[in-house]
């Protein structure tokens, strides 16, 4: 018997796939050929070892089943996913979700940016100032710190509520305010209801002036009825 056929013949013999004639011929060959007999014996050993080992392999399946059932029950109830997100449509569904997420994200960023760059600061909560009018450049900025800031706020309140001196509205002197709000004071003192000072953006007909530069806008509400033409009450 050819060596290449030995292994196949052994398996066919032990699997019971040989005809009666083939079986007899194989057994006679095994008696004559010690190598074939060894191979046959080895295969028998392997098969019996596997059978015995399989019998010794036992697991507590009921315990595992109970455990897994508990895990399944403990899961949050999922509503079935849209078919586009499962199976063959998963790739499409994933890209769709990504696209929607991206659009929402971009819109959110644009919205927040728009809000931040267009919102006017609270008139009582001015934290920074810049050159308003005159020849001051946009870079001519400085932090409005106390007590000048507090004084300025008090002055504005005074003008709005009690019609105090316009000088009060912007500080004791233009120097103290870095020459920035001095122009606004001049606007108020001259009582120019429609005048524009420096790059003041708007002076309302009712006396509300919004002064702005590239970096900050200061809104000063002045009740013009309380001011005379010369800026006094």
């Amino acid at each position: 018997m050819k060596r290449s056929h030995i292994h196949r013949s052994i398996e066919r013999y032990l699997d019971g796939k040989m005809s009666a004639g083939e079986r007899q011929a194989f057994e006679e060959a095994a008696v004559r050929d010690p190598e074939l007999a060894e191979m046959l014996r080895a295969e028998e050993m392997i098969r019996s070892a596997v059978t015995r080992e399989r019998a010794s392999m036992r697991m507590d399946e009921s315990r595992l089943r109970t455990h897994l059932s508990a895990v399944l029950e403990g899961l949050p109830v999922h509503s079935p996913l849209p078919s586009a997100l499962v199976g063959k449509g998963a790739a499409l569904g994933t890209s769709l979700v990504k696209t929607i997420g991206t659009v929402i994200g971009v819109l959110g960023v644009v919205g927040v940016s728009f809000f931040l760059f267009t919102a006017e600061p609270d008139e009582h909560n001015i934290r920074s100032g810049s050159a308003v009018g005159g020849n001051a450049s946009p870079s001519d900025t400085r932090e409005m710190v106390n007590p000048a800031e507090a004084q300025e706020e008090r002055g504005i309140d005074a003008v709005m509520n009690r019609g105090g001196s316009p000088q009060d509205a912007v500080g004791t002197s233009p120097r103290e305010t870095g020459g920035r709000l001095g122009n606004a004071a001049e606007l108020s003192t001259t009582g120019d209801r429609e005048g524009r000072v420096g790059n003041a953006r708007d002076v309302g007909s009712e006396g509300s002036a919004v002064l702005s530069s590239d970096t900050v806008r200061v809104k000063v509400k002045v009740n013009m009825r309380d001011l005379g033409k010369d800026g006094n009450r």
Partner: peptide, 20 residues
């Protein structure tokens, strides 16, 4: 048994995910 249990737990963890 540990490996078998871990395998099934991983299969359970697939739930709710878009898998193909």
């Amino acid at each position: 048994e540990d490996v078998t249990q871990e395998t099934w737990e991983r299969i359970i963890a697939l739930r709710g995910h878009a898998v193909e």
